[in-house]
C-alpha cells in the first residue's frame, strides 16, 4: 500500500470515529431492538394471547413503572448489584494474584491446570446447595456463589495469560534486574491482561447467572427473587420487566466495565493482533 492511500484510510477511520459515526452506531444498535419491540407489540395484538401467557408491551412498561414508584426496583437492584460487586471484588483480589503466581511457575501451573479445569466446570450454580448449607439462606450464600463462579475462571485465565507471555519479554525484564514485586505489577499482570479480560468476561457470565439462580433459591430480595415471586402469581408483566432489567444491566456492565477496560489496555497496547509475537 502506498503512503497517500494509507493516510487517507487513517483519516477516514478517524472521521468514522467522529460524532456522525456514534449516531449511526447508536441507530444500528437501538434500531433493531426497537423493531423487535414493535414486532412483539404487533404479535401480541394480532394473536391475542392472554396476559397470563405473554404480556403486551404496555403492560410491561406499566409493571416497570409500578416497580419504580413502589421503590421495589431499587431495593431489588441494590441488593443484586451489591452482591455482584462484593463477589466480583473478592474474586479479583483472590483470583488474580493466585493465578499470576501459578502462571509464573512451570511446575505449579502444570500441577494446577487439571484441577482448575475441573473447578471451572463446577463453578457457580453447582455450589448453591453446599453454599446454602454452609452459609444459610441469605446474602452470604449468594456472595459466595458469585465469588466462586468468578474465582476459578479468573485464576485459570490469569495463569494461562502469564504462560503466554513470550519468553523473550520475561528475559528482557529479568536482565534489567526486575525484582519479584515489580515483576508482578509491571510485567506479569499487564502481560497476562488479554487473557485476564477473557477470564473476567467468562467469570462475570457465570457469576451473573449464579447470582440470579442463587437469588431465586436463597434470598428475599434481588432481581432473581422478584422474578420468582412474580412467577408464583403468574404476573408475566413483572417477569418480562425483570428479564429486561437483567439484560440491560448485563449490557451496561459489558459496555461500562469491560469494553473501556479492554480499550484502555489491551487495544491501546496492540495486544489483540496475532502479529505482536
Amino acid at each position: 500500500m502506498t503512503a497517500p492511500t494509507a493516510r487517507r484510510r487513517a483519516l477516514l477511520t478517524a472521521r468514522r470515529r467522529g460524532l456522525l459515526s456514534t449516531a449511526t452506531g447508536a441507530l444500528w444498535f437501538f434500531g433493531p431492538l426497537a423493531a423487535l419491540v414493535a414486532a412483539w407489540a404487533v404479535a401480541v395484538r394480532v394473536s391475542g394471547v392472554e396476559m397470563r401467557v405473554f404480556p403486551q408491551v404496555t403492560d410491561v412498561l406499566g409493571a416497570l413503572g409500578d416497580l419504580w414508584s413502589s421503590g421495589d426496583l431499587f431495593r431489588h437492584l441494590g441488593a443484586s448489584l451489591r452482591r455482584a460487586g462484593l463477589g466480583m471484588a473478592l474474586a479479583l483480589v483472590t483470583g488474580l494474584p493466585f493465578g499470576v503466581a501459578l502462571g509464573a511457575s512451570r511446575v505449579l501451573s502444570a500441577f494446577f491446570l487439571p484441577l482448575l479445569r475441573f473447578s471451572v466446570a463446577l463453578a457457580g450454580i453447582a455450589w448453591i446447595p453446599i453454599a446454602t448449607l454452609w452459609f444459610g439462606y441469605g446474602d452470604r450464600a449468594v456472595i459466595f456463589i458469585v465469588w466462586n463462579a468468578m474465582f476459578f475462571a479468573l485464576t485459570y485465565n490469569a495463569m494461562l495469560g502469564v504462560r503466554q507471555i513470550p519468553v523473550e519479554v520475561l528475559r528482557a525484564a529479568r536482565s534489567m534486574g526486575t525484582g519479584r514485586l515489580r515483576m508482578f505489577w509491571e510485567v506479569l499482570l499487564p502481560g497476562a491482561l488479554p487473557s485476564i479480560v477473557t477470564g473476567l468476561r467468562v467469570g462475570l457470565g457465570y457469576g451473573w447467572r449464579g447470582l440470579v439462580a442463587a437469588e431465586i433459591i436463597a434470598t428475599n430480595a434481588g432481581l432473581g427473587y422478584a422474578l420468582f415471586q412474580a412467577q408464583k402469581y403468574f404476573q408475566t408483566d413483572v417477569i418480562i420487566a425483570s428479564m429486561v432489567i437483567i439484560g440491560v444491566l448485563w449490557l451496561l456492565m459489558d459496555r461500562l466495565l469491560l469494553a473501556p477496560l479492554e480499550r484502555r489496555t489491551v487495544e491501546r497496547w496492540g495486544m489483540t493482533g496475532a502479529g505482536d509475537r
Partner: peptide, 13 residues
C-alpha cells in the same frame, strides 16, 4: 543488557 531478535518490548508501556 540484551537486544532480542523479537524486540521483546513491553507492549503495555
Amino acid at each position: 543488557g540484551v537486544v532480542f531478535q523479537s524486540h521483546a518490548l513491553f507492549p503495555w508501556k
